[in-house]
């Protein structure tokens, strides 16, 4: 759809990292909040945002979640506690702290999960918010999607602290930290479950680092000249979209026919979403000025 000019601007694919959104978000309660970055379609779909409306947003149409005004980097759905894709790297951390604070303030058992990339850990807000969250014991789950690259910069070219990020969280007083294989949806699910239990029982923030890889370029504008194809292929061999179904078949939990049925129902959903988006009109001119209050 991007190459056909229906979706434009910056578009950041989540391909390769699906096990994280699916595994982690499956453990959340309806009143939990999610805050994420611009690579947000995976989280949105995992949280159950309407794929039709997500697609319409990507198309810039009126039936998009934000009436076409946010675009792919800025998906929101308050009913699902989905408080944004955010496109300023590191911009989402303070927002997450505030959302978590609201749960604490209201004595709710709700949690805010904030997803972020390895590159964003070099922003000041990451460090400031980890400290704030630990000091105030905020119910926040820091979820690092470590795909080894921030745009063209491999983590070791912009970070001297080594390949593991999660030990750093402990230095802020975040006691519950974990590292997990981000290509293994069950492992992500289990780690998230434990982290949420810790947070919900009042221990303050937790931190999970998932090791993963984005199979595509940073965005559609990226020619991917900075890394070896072999590195990508090694990760592609562990594509959770292949390995997980294979495991389920091996364990006789699903039959090949059932698997095929799921695949074709997903394909059908995509076709419906595209049709929905294509049929939705562009926003009327007045929309330029709605939600402007001063």
């Amino acid at each position: 759809m991007y190459t056909r000019g229906q979706v434009r601007g910056f578009l950041h694919l989540y391909i390769g990292e699906e096990a994280i959104a699916v595994g982690a978000i499956s453990q959340l309660l309806p009143h939990d909040y999610i805050v994420t970055h611009y690579r947000d379609h995976g989280h949105a779909l995992a949280r159950g945002l309407d794929p039709n409306r997500v697609m319409a947003e990507l198309f810039g149409r009126i039936d998009g979640l934000s009436k076409g005004k946010g675009g792919s980097m800025h998906l929101f759905d308050t009913e699902k506690g989905f408080i944004g894709g955010h496109a300023i790297v590191g911009g989402q951390f303070p927002l997450a702290a505030g959302l978590a604070l609201s749960h604490q303030y209201r004595k709710s058992d709700g949690v805010c999960v904030v997803f972020f990339g390895d590159g964003s850990t070099n922003q000041g807000t990451y460090h400031e918010v980890m400290n704030l969250a630990a000091v105030w014991k905020l119910p926040i789950l820091f979820f690092l999607e470590n795909n080894l690259y921030g745009m063209g910069s491999r983590f070791d070219r912009v970070r001297a602290g080594g390949e593991d990020f999660y030990p750093g969280a402990a230095t802020y007083g975040i006691d519950h930290t974990a590292v997990v294989d981000g290509m293994d949806v069950m492992a992500v699910q289990e780690a998230t479950k434990l982290a949420l239990e810790s947070i919900r029982s009042g221990n303050g923030p937790a931190f999970i680092e998932a090791k993963t890889f984005r199979f595509q370029g940073h965005s559609m504008a990226d020619p991917v000249k900075y890394r070896d194809r072999l590195e990508t292929e090694a990760w592609e061999a562990r594509d959770p979209l292949n390995t997980f179904p294979r495991d389920l078949l091996d364990q006789n939990l699903f039959t090949e026919a059932e698997m095929e049925e799921i695949r074709s129902s997903v394909d059908a959903e995509v076709v419906v979403a595209i049709k929905f988006a294509e049929d939705s009109p562009f926003p009327p001119d007045e929309e330029l000025f709605t939600d402007i209050y001063a």
């Binding site: 810039g60 076409g68 005004k69 675009g71 792919s72 562009f282 926003p283 001119d285 330029l288």
Partner: peptide, 16 residues
């Protein structure tokens, strides 16, 4: 320019 944030949708963006 119009006093609005820049919307994503192309026709709206051009309008501003």
């Amino acid at each position: 320019g119009t006093d609005t944030p820049s919307p994503y949708s192309r026709p709206l963006e051009q309008l501003g």
